[in-house]
Amino acid sequence: MGALLQVESLNVGLRNGAGVVVPVIENLSFEVHSGRTTALVGESGCGKSMTALAIMRLLPEDFVITGGRIVLEGEDILSLSPKRMRALRGNGMSMIFQEPMTALNPLFTVGDQIAEVLRWHQGLSASAAHAQAVEFLRAVQIPALEQRVNAYPHQLSGGMRQRVMIAMALAGRPKLLIADEPTTALDVTVQAQIFDLLAKLQQDTGTAVLLITHDLGAVAELADDVLVLYAGRCIESGASADLVGHPRHPYTRGLLGCVPHLKLGQRMPAVWSDLGEIAGMVPPLGARGADCAFLARCRDASDVCRSRPQPMLEPIETDHAVSCWRKSEIAA
């Protein structure tokens, strides 16, 4: 079976004040399959949210898609009419945003906001849509739903609001769900509940999920496939267990090394040992040349890296590709 979503060498640029288009995302290609979760991982500014917005065709003003194809079920999204695109958003794909407070309309009850999706996309009557909205709230495990369906967003806690967002995103029964850092704004115990809920709903509906996160530790558990982005370029991709277990790219290795891991049942050494850190920072937009984007911060950089442009993303084994000149020397 073919992929549900295919992104082929997507290029996105930002038109700056002088009218010059600065690349934001370069040559990004990946696929998302039904019932599976693909994660885009990277630091802020690496282009992961822009990728999501490009797929939804919701890029902010001044951002332009300069090349590539985005194909959802055989339909090239980039050539669709605004009307067809509107129909697709909600039915074909939908999105959960990071901040549920700003993504919900404060002037309508949550029931009305979920019902709106159903009335638009499934042509239900107001009362039928309202009844269905209650069912969706039940599916996202909101307690006391008879009252909650008539509540306004400000009357709900952060976790409840994110559940409402998920209910809204699922109301159109989308084939692709894009979750942009769905738990970043939430407390840790609530985060765990939301991830469990997403996993369960995916199992029930077979939706494909594109998960956007900065937490490389969490993807091992949540995603089937992972792409690591750096400065708008994909530098490593593969099956999540393999990639997290045996990262090859120096950046991926650095990213995993700088996160402290909780150690249970063990005493910590009394002396502090420095966390692994990646010196320097991500090159800003416009300062990204043809060189490997990670060159300036890379500890393993050699003359090969300095003399050649950004390497291609090449497979190193089945289901694991790396963009690094020294990929075969840097052992797993």
Partner: peptide, 26 residues
């Protein structure tokens, strides 16, 4: 509950979550 939510992925975390992770919001 806090530890269960933050434990590293793996069977131990699943077990901790099943036994100790609390429901709902504060």
């Amino acid at each position: 509950s806090l530890i269960a939510a933050a434990a590293p992925p793996g069977p131990i975390r699943d077990e901790l979550k099943r036994r100790y992770l609390v429901k709902g919001d504060p």
